[in-house]
């Protein structure tokens, strides 16, 4: 399960192994360190907390992995999450329909909104060959404005009881929302390694022209990657709603940065073409464990922020050397 190169399962390379263990090792050391410095760290309650807290970032990170692998970036996921959440929230608080119907419609509306935003991101940047950085920056504003407009800048609450309950289910202390995110990771891993689509995602990230000349429709795959990223933002919105029982137009500010950080810490190259969702899973864990552990240690807010920033920089430096020695 743990390879971070483009190499498929059967052919785990030494480099791939080193890469994944590198990031896994960092996570392991972090866990050991926090376990020693706080008695509460390795309690089931706290583990459950960490899993809850990384869920949204993990979901966004999975989508972001696709976009970064094709050599793009999506800065809009935080805003798209807010937009999807208020659209879903509006549907979910509609009266006159049964709870079940409303929930199904709301889920579809949330995912649909996200996917639509992603489709727009991808179609515009791929069709005109524009940098996704700037297109998604535009979408960041559009989606945020849309969210505020739809919600009239108000928090939406009072969802059907069944939905609110669903968000708090857990199995042996493992929150159901995290399990769903894990399922998403698995699905993404299968797509990236065992489908033509996934192969093209890696191919485009490495050498778009070669893929085009091999007769593939680069446009379609690029749009696909962005659509997946947008859909993940919609899914993140539903997770947000299930966890907090509100939908907020100001939710998700700067979430895109955490998602990008998770992807990059996980060893995916910002230049595209190299990386995996397993890495993103690790990256999300590192960010979550760090945020949790530093609070348990009693570090103040500002120190905490500084250390988190430092870890991101160190992770990228490590990635630089890894890339340098891996691609000889």
């Amino acid at each position: 399960m743990s390879d971070t190169t483009v190499t498929p399962t059967k052919t785990i390379t030494v480099q791939g192994l080193l890469q994944s263990t590198g990031i896994g090792l960092a996570l392991f050391l972090l866990i050991v360190f926090f376990s020693l410095s706080s008695e509460h760290f390795l309690t089931s309650g706290n583990i459950s907390n960490i899993l809850t807290q990384i869920t949204i970032n993990l979901i966004l990170g999975v989508g972001m992995t696709f976009v970064i692998l094709i050599g793009g970036i999506d800065l809009s996921v935080g805003s798209v999450l807010a937009f999807s959440s208020v659209v879903a929230g509006k549907v979910m608080t509609m009266t006159g329909l049964g709870d079940g119907t409303v929930i199904v419609f709301a889920v579809m509306a949330g995912l649909g909104t996200g996917m639509l935003c992603g489709l727009m991101n991808g179609a515009i940047s791929a069709w005109w060959g524009l940098p996704s950085f700037i297109i998604t920056l535009g979408m960041l504003n559009i989606a945020r404005g849309g969210a505020l407009h739809v919600a009239e800048a108000r928090t939406i609450y009072s969802f059907p009881y069944a939905f609110e309950e669903f968000g708090s289910i857990s199995f042996f202390g493992i929150p159901i929302l995290f399990l769903l995110a894990l399922l998403l990771v698995l699905l993404a891993w299968l797509i990236l390694n065992f489908t033509v689509f996934g192969r093209m995602v890696y191919g485009i990230g490495n050498n778009e022209e070669a893929v085009r000349l091999a007769g593939h429709n680069v446009f379609r795959y690029k749009v696909g990657a962005f659509a997946i990223c947008g859909t993940c933002a919609g899914l993140g919105a539903l997770a947000y709603m299930a966890r907090l029982n509100i939908a907020s137009p100001i939710a998700g500010i700067a979430f895109e940065l955490d998602a990008i950080a998770a992807v990059i810490i996980g060893g995916t190259s910002l230049a595209g073409g190299r990386g995996s969702v397993i890495g993103t899973l690790m990256g999300a864990f590192i960010i979550g464990v760090l945020a949790n552990g530093l609070i348990l240690m009693g570090l103040n807010d500002f120190m905490r922020q500084m250390i988190t920033g430092l870890v991101i920089i160190v992770a990228v430096i490590v990635d630089y050397y890894r890339a340098k020695y891996a691609n000889v």
């Binding site: 483009v6 190499t7 052919t11 192969r199 890696y202 191919g203 490495n206 050498n207 022209e209 070669a210 893929v211 000349l213 073409g273 190299r274 691609n327």
Partner: peptide, 13 residues
């Protein structure tokens, strides 16, 4: 290098 191969990817791919 720029059009024919995806150098970082395996031979089989």
């Amino acid at each position: 290098k720029d059009e024919g191969l995806i150098l970082q990817m395996p031979i089989s791919m």
